[in-house]
C-alpha cells in the first residue's frame, strides 16, 4: 500500500488505533493516500469511515499510532522511540492544508453566505478582505449561488447550504478535502446538484480527496480508489472498475448487494436491469450509464 515511486503521500495512517471507551473503532490501521488521489471509503455504519476523516481533521484524538500529512506528523511524532504529542500550534499549521465538508453543512448562522466564505481566508490566512470577497464571488459562481451572497444560511435550502459549505472549504485552497457523507442530509432530488459540483471540483483541480459516501455512483465517477471497511479494517481495495464489477471478497459483495442493488431486479444501478428498463435505482444518484460494457452474469457476483 506504499505510495507509488516513493513519492511522499498526502495522507498516511501508520498503526492507527482509535477507541471510544472500550469500543475499538480502528485497530492498527495502515493506509496511504497519494497526492491527487480521490479515495472513497465505503462500508457499513460503525465501520470507522467517518472516524478516519475526523482523525485527519483533528476532530478526534487518536488513541495510538501516527498520521502523516505530506510526510509530516499531524498530532504525534516518534521521538527517540517515544510517542510524543505535538504542540497545538503545529497541529494548526498542518490543519490549514486540510478542508472538510460536513453532513450537516455547519454554516455559521450569525454570518451571511459571503461572510461565511471569507471568514477563515481573512482571519486565518490573513488575506485582504477585497481579495477574499473577489475569490468568494468566484466560488459562489462556481457552485451556482452568485445571487445568494447576502442571504443568511437559514434562508437557504439544504442543497444550497451544502454548496456554500463546499465554497467555504475551497476558499481555503486546501490540499486535501474531506467529504463526510455530504449528501446524507439532503432530499433525494437535490443530491445530484451537490454531487455534480463536487465532480466539477474533482475534474478541475488536483485536490486530494478522501470521501465517505453512500452514493456508489458518485464514488465510481469521482474516485480512483475505493477502500471497503468493516470492523475498523480494510476488507478490500481497488479501482472503481475492479471494485464494482468484480469484487473479490464476499463481505464486499454482500455490502454492495445491500446498499445499491435494485430491490426488484437485484441489478446494480450502473448495470441495465435484466429485462426491465426505467426502474429507478435505490439511491437517487444521477444515473448516467456506466462507460464500461455490461458485465456478464459470470462477472457479476449478484
Amino acid at each position: 500500500m506504499a505510495a507509488p515511486n516513493g513519492a511522499v503521500p498526502a495522507i498516511e495512517f501508520r498503526d492507527v488505533q482509535k477507541r471510544f471507551g472500550d469500543t475499538v473503532v480502528l485497530d492498527g490501521l495502515n493506509f496511504t493516500v497519494a497526492k491527487g488521489d480521490r479515495v472513497t471509503l465505503i462500508g457499513p455504519s460503525g465501520s470507522g469511515k467517518t472516524t478516519i476523516l475526523r482523525l485527519v481533521m483533528t476532530l478526534e484524538d487518536l488513541t495510538d499510532g501516527y498520521i502523516f500529512i505530506d510526510g509530516e506528523p499531524l498530532t504525534h511524532a516518534e521521538v527517540d522511540g517515544e510517542r510524543v504529542e505535538l504542540k497545538p500550534k503545529h497541529k494548526t499549521e498542518i490543519r490549514k492544508r486540510i478542508g472538510m465538508v460536513f453532513q450537516q453543512f455547519n454554516l455559521f448562522p450569525n454570518m451571511t453566505v459571503i461572510e461565511n466564505i471569507i471568514e477563515a481566508p481573512v482571519h486565518v490566512l490573513g488575506m485582504s478582505k477585497e481579495d477574499a470577497i473577489e475569490k468568494a464571488r468566484g466560488l459562489l459562481d462556481q457552485v451556482g449561488l452568485a445571487d445568494k451572497e447576502d442571504a443568511h444560511p437559514l434562508e437557504l435550502s439544504g442543497g444550497q447550504q451544502q454548496r456554500v459549505a463546499i465554497a467555504r472549504a475551497l476558499a481555503m485552497d486546501p490540499e486535501i478535502l474531506l467529504l463526510d457523507e455530504v449528501t446524507s442530509a439532503l432530499d433525494p432530488e437535490i443530491v445530484g446538484e451537490v454531487l455534480g459540483i463536487l465532480k466539477d471540483v474533482a475534474e478541475s483541480t488536483d485536490i486530494t480527496m478522501l470521501i465517505v459516501t453512500h452514493e456508489m455512483q458518485f464514488a465510481r465517477d469521482v474516485s480512483n480508489r475505493i477502500l471497503m471497511f468493516d470492523g475498523g479494517r480494510i476488507v478490500e481495495e481497488g479501482t472503481p472498475e475492479e471494485f464494482f464489477t468484480n469484487p473479490k471478497e464476499q463481505r464486499t459483495r454482500d455490502f454492495l448487494q445491500a446498499v445499491v442493488a435494485d430491490p426488484i431486479t437485484g441489478a446494480l444501478p450502473w448495470q441495465p436491469a435484466p429485462g426491465a428498463s426505467g426502474t429507478p435505482a435505490a439511491p437517487a444518484t444521477p444515473t448516467t450509464p456506466s462507460t464500461t460494457s455490461t458485465t456478464t452474469q459470470d462477472g457479476d457476483p449478484l
Binding site: M57, T58, L59, T92, R95, K96, I98, G99, M100, F102, Q104, N106, L107, F108, P109, N110, E119, A120, H123, V124, R168, A169, M172
Partner: peptide, 25 residues
C-alpha cells in the same frame, strides 16, 4: 457541536472561534 467542528476545519484559533462564531450564537 457542528459549529465548533466547522471552526476547527477552518483552522480558526480558539479565540477567533469564541469571538466570531460561538459567542454571537
Amino acid at each position: 457541536q457542528g459549529q465548533w467542528e466547522a471552526t476547527t476545519a477552518l483552522s480558526m484559533t480558539s479565540a477567533q472561534r469564541m469571538r466570531r462564531v460561538i459567542f454571537p450564537q
